[in-house]
């Protein structure tokens, strides 16, 4: 079984350099800067409203290499968070009342200190969400993860771009759909995705191509009906997430000749209501090396928090970060287009 294709880094692609991506986003097209457009919300600038989600990217290592991955994650990536940096995250978290910790990657489970970190976060009394690609739950040495998740009441959020096997495999790799279904059955058997179990299992839809996601609630009904009918599997919520022009999705847009039309669509569908509710306002994103970002997309573009806010977890200052001004570039249009998009799905 070959799940992985190639990362931009392994191909020595020019876009493996984050600054090359920023250069394209800022200068390839003559679009109104997002920061200017944001003023249509009635607010002068995009400022955080208080951190509720502490999102930790524990590394770029992954057993898959999905075509749309903004992280450019894959089996060849070696950047993973050390236990020392995790301790700094825990120290920072302990000094706050931030209720939710969102652990992402890569495949976060492949970080050798993942389970230790989850237990330590739970010991601080915080809710833990983890973004699992599902296929990792079937890999050697990881098969007991569903039980681990259940034991620690970890909320599991997983990508399944479509209930059609061919569409999912197109984006995520050969056999990913069938293996994802097998993993979901294991989670369901423990109560995940079942009403009343207290074990939350949410799915993520990303469009398989250069278009925006459909209405989230309508699509959730389709997913529930089709996945129940075809595979007898269940889940709680569906998050419809827009692909942002970052990482391998940016490379796809450029290589397929869709970049200009896609960016134009994002700009033309700018929605002030969605823009006001973007997730960077209540999130702080921590990179594998401890640097701080406004979101995971900014992290992959290496755009650290700015405007005087502390940039590393060792200098974490909750009060300053709670009211920081957000660093924006043209990719931000992706979170504000149509119904909006966040790690928790549609906004408006």
């Amino acid at each position: 079984m070959a799940l992985a294709s190639k990362t931009l880094l392994s191909l020595r692609h020019p876009l493996s350099d984050a600054s090359a991506q920023v250069e394209i986003l800022e200068n390839k097209l003559n679009l109104m800067p997002f920061a200017e457009r944001f003023k249509e919300t009635g607010e002068e600038e995009l400022v955080a409203t208080g951190i509720e989600i502490f999102q930790v990217n524990v590394g770029k290592l992954c057993n898959q290499a999905c075509k749309h991955c903004h992280v450019d994650a894959g089996p060849d990536r070696r950047e993973i968070m050390s236990q020392e940096t995790m301790r700094l995250c825990l120290d920072a978290l302990a000094k706050t009342a931030i209720p939710k910790v969102d652990i992402t990657g890569g495949a976060p489970e492949m970080n050798p200190n993942f389970r230790w970190f989850v237990k330590e976060v739970k010991a601080l009394g915080r809710h833990v969400m983890t973004r699992s690609n599902l296929t990792i739950l079937l890999a050697n040495g990881f098969e007991d993860l569903p039980e681990f998740f259940a034991e620690h009441q970890v909320e599991v959020i997983s990508s399944l771009p479509h209930y059609s096997p061919s569409l999912t495999d197109k984006q995520r790799g050969e056999d990913v759909f069938s293996r994802s279904i097998e993993a979901i059955k294991r989670l369901n058997a423990l109560g995940y995705g079942k009403e009343g179990s207290g074990l939350i299992f949410n799915l993520v839809h990303n469009p398989v191509g250069a278009f925006l996601p459909p209405n989230q609630s309508a699509l959730e009904k389709d997913y529930k009906r089709e996945l129940s009918k075809r595979y007898e599997i269940a889940f709680n919520r569906l998050y419809a997430i827009t692909n942002l022009p970052v990482g391998r999705f940016l490379e796809y847009l450029l290589a397929s000749g869709n970049y200009e039309a896609y960016m134009t669509k994002l700009v033309s569908q700018f929605n002030p209501v969605a823009a006001k509710g973007v997730m960077c306002r209540n999130t702080i994103s921590i990179g594998w090396d401890g640097y701080l970002y406004d979101c995971d997309f900014n992290q992959m573009l290496e755009l650290k928090v700015g405007y005087g806010a502390p940039t590393h977890i060792k200098d974490f200052d909750w009060e300053k970060l709670n009211r920081r001004k957000i660093v924006t570039r043209q990719h931000c249009y992706g979170c504000a287009a149509g119904a909006g998009s966040s790690c928790g799905g549609a906004i408006a």
Partner: peptide, 11 residues
């Protein structure tokens, strides 16, 4: 484009 954006499949 609109059909894709509304969640329609190629089929």
């Amino acid at each position: 484009q609109e059909s894709l954006s509304k969640g329609a499949t190629l089929e």
